[in-house]
Write a protein that binds this DNA or RNA. Structure first.
Lengths: 221, 221
DNA sequence: ACCTGAACACCGTTCAAGT
DNA sequence: ACCTGAACACCGTTCAAGT
């Protein structure tokens, strides 16, 4: 019987694309992106490194599957209520997804991954914007801005990183010469306290949404 | 005589933190972040891998020096004119810096780097915001949003990546089932055309600045 | 102080072989 | 079709030794 390529049937040793990707995601979550190696993953699965190459062409393909898997976990919000509220919920969920699987974000470095799993978020975002009255190209621009802000915040202000980073930051800020960095030194306490909070994220997000509405929607009235 | 990228003559013992970091940055620019290895860098410098460890404790310390070097290249704008204009110029320059040295961005993954070189930008940003009338904690929040947006855009919408990515994106969007992704498929042309332009960046930036002004400054009047 | 050379414990991947 | 085992060309870093 011919098997579909994407079928999740497990073989004698219990290996399948599904299972490999899931264990790889767990491994990356626990040990960080550097901990996710083909050899380490094979060890985790009690299998030879080369066994993985039966299911994936190489590490890149495996990694794409891992990111897609992580993206599928997102619980997309319902499409009810004001458009700004819908986008808030969507981007909050996107950020929480990245928070859960930080390494999945850094995996998407050079090549843009556009598998169906990862495109569910963008699809919903575009739908909300189009329905709100944005033209196609305005909607694309608006989504781009919202998306950049959200992933940028998750990348450089993640709470996970912040917990480890806070004392480091405090020391680094204290070490800056205050004749050269007066603004930073004077606001050091505020800066450290403010690192990576969910509130900070939501506040910036609302500012961006306000601005988008003004520039794209209100101008025609 | 083999043509070297670096112009200055190196004597037999001409190794220094400065020179090592500069060659490392060139290497990362040319070959990507994966091309920057201690062994490869040593080969480039006609030296044993271990010679580098005389000047740097390890790869992490070297990499911090590389990022700091890249950050020092930024030509910060003058502090004249309206505050929104000043921030526009600053963040545009920040984005261009990342565009010039894409790998420097991805280096800052786990640990937050706060060397004097990289803090010049944040310092100026904070100064502008404080002078504009933002309170300390509002200024921190505002900078955080602007910074996240800028680096997020540079990370996920870089023109460098886009040139390589455009046809890939076109194919990937075309491959999405349009009953499941109606919004994306209908705006595919706009989405591909709009990828990573400088205009897109500036437009989103202005929206964010507008929103920040409304939420933080105008509310008190 | 500055650099070399050998060594250790890792990588991703190819290739030939086993079942 | 699925997996093993050995091999190749890489890593970062330690340690002892040379100058």
């Amino acid at each position: 019987m011919p098997a579909k390529a994407s079928s999740e049937r497990s073989t004698a040793s219990g290996l399948s694309r599904e299972r490999i990707a899931r264990v790889a995601l767990e491994l990356a979550d626990q040990e960080g992106l550097d901990g996710l190696s083909m050899r380490r993953l094979a060890r985790e699965l009690d299998v030879t490194p080369m066994a993985l190459y039966v299911h994936f062409r190489g590490k890149d393909e495996l990694i794409d599957a891992v990111v897609d898997l992580a993206a599928r976990e997102l619980k997309l919000p319902s499409e009810r209520g004001p458009w700004k509220r819908q986008l808030e919920l969507l981007l909050r969920e996107l950020r929480r997804g990245v928070e859960r699987h930080p390494s999945a974000l850094w995996i998407r470095r050079e090549r843009p991954l556009m598998s169906p799993g990862v495109m569910r978020g963008p699809e919903l975002g575009m739908r909300i914007l189009l329905r709100a009255g944005f033209s196609k190209s305005d909607a694309v621009a608006a989504w781009r801005a919202l998306f950049s802000y959200t992933l940028g915040f998750a990348s450089f202000s993640s709470t996970a990183r912040v917990e480890n980073a806070r004392h480091h930051a405090r020391a680094a800020l204290a070490a800056l010469p205050d004749d050269e960095f007066p603004a930073l030194v004077s606001a050091a306490t505020e800066a450290v306290d403010a690192m990576g909070g969910e509130d900070q994220f939501e506040f910036g997000l609302r500012c961006l949404l306000d601005g988008l509405q003004r520039r794209y929607l209100d101008r025609e009235k």
